[in-house]
Amino acid sequence: MRLLLVRHGETPSNVASLLDTAAPGPGLTALGARQAAALPEALADEDIEALYASTLVRTQLTAAPLAAARGLRVHIRDGIRELAAGDLEREPGDTERGRLYMRTVLAWADGERELRMPGPGGESGTEALARYDAVVAEAAGSGARTVAMVSHGAAIRLWTAVRARNLDADFAAAHPLRNTGVVVLEGSPDDGWRALSWAGALVTPAREGGPAGRPVDAG
């Protein structure tokens, strides 16, 4: 299966650099709406047969133009929502407490999966991966050859760092995903996943000409 993981369009919380992971979450800014409107053309070469979005409003608004252009139903699934911030919710991302969020996510990516985000509602890496895996498995079992999932930056970075055999925690740390950035993978839950491109840059396959996950010029 070909899997396209798409980050949602820009939100007011992105502009303010605030951690904002709770449901239903904010809508899109004017720029975010334009980013969403540009997705059908940006993905024109992809033969998308199934489209998913998370339970947060911003992903559904981002998916809507693509769904309309392709005549697709949007499958809403909680499993691909953003990683819950717990007590760090609404913290500015550039404060010490705000930086703890991504430090925890990257620790999960590096194998420390039983760490938890602080406070009520904070989840562990094991829990976050399990819910994301369940939605990917559902999509793989649908028979669709190409699936797009509109999800969230930290969740996409974690899942790909752990599940794509040619990416790792160092790659996730060095490569934030911009709004409506797309990660393209191929594989299956049984056979594993390989990242093909990250936000337009090709990804060197593990053991094939470069360090695992090293981006190369797409030409």
Rank of each mutant, 00 (worst) to 15 (best):
V74A: 02
V74F: 06
H75K: 06
I76C: 02
I80W: 06
R81C: 00
E82S: 04
E82T: 08
L83F: 14
A84S: 14
A85Y: 11
G86C: 07
D87M: 05
D87Q: 11
L88A: 06
R90D: 12
R90F: 14
E91Y: 00
E91F: 00
G93H: 15
D94N: 14
R97P: 08
R97G: 07
R97Y: 07
R99I: 00
L100C: 13
M102G: 11
M102A: 14
T104N: 03
W108R: 10
A109P: 05
D110I: 06
E112H: 13
L115S: 02
R116E: 05
P118A: 06
P118I: 10
P120G: 09
E123D: 13
G125L: 04
T126W: 10
E127N: 08
A128K: 02
A130Q: 01
Y132H: 08
Y132S: 04
D133V: 06
D133I: 08
V135H: 07
V135E: 05
A137V: 08
A137C: 06
E138C: 12
E138H: 05
A140K: 03
A140W: 09
G141M: 08
A144S: 04
A144K: 06
A144E: 06
V147D: 07
M149S: 11
S151K: 03
S151E: 07
G153M: 04
G153F: 00
G153D: 09
A154L: 12
A154K: 13
A154G: 10
A155M: 03
A155Q: 02
R157S: 03
T160L: 11
R165W: 15
R165P: 09
N166P: 13
A172I: 12
A173D: 11
P176T: 09
L177E: 10
L177D: 01
R178N: 15
T180L: 09
T180K: 05
V182W: 13
V182N: 10
V182M: 08
V183H: 03
V184F: 00
L185D: 08
E186S: 15
E186R: 09
E186H: 15
E186M: 15
G187K: 14
G187V: 04
R194Q: 15
A195Q: 11
L196G: 05
S197E: 01
W198V: 02
G200F: 14
A201E: 14
L202K: 11
L202Y: 12
L202T: 15
P205T: 11
A206T: 13
R207Q: 12
R207W: 15
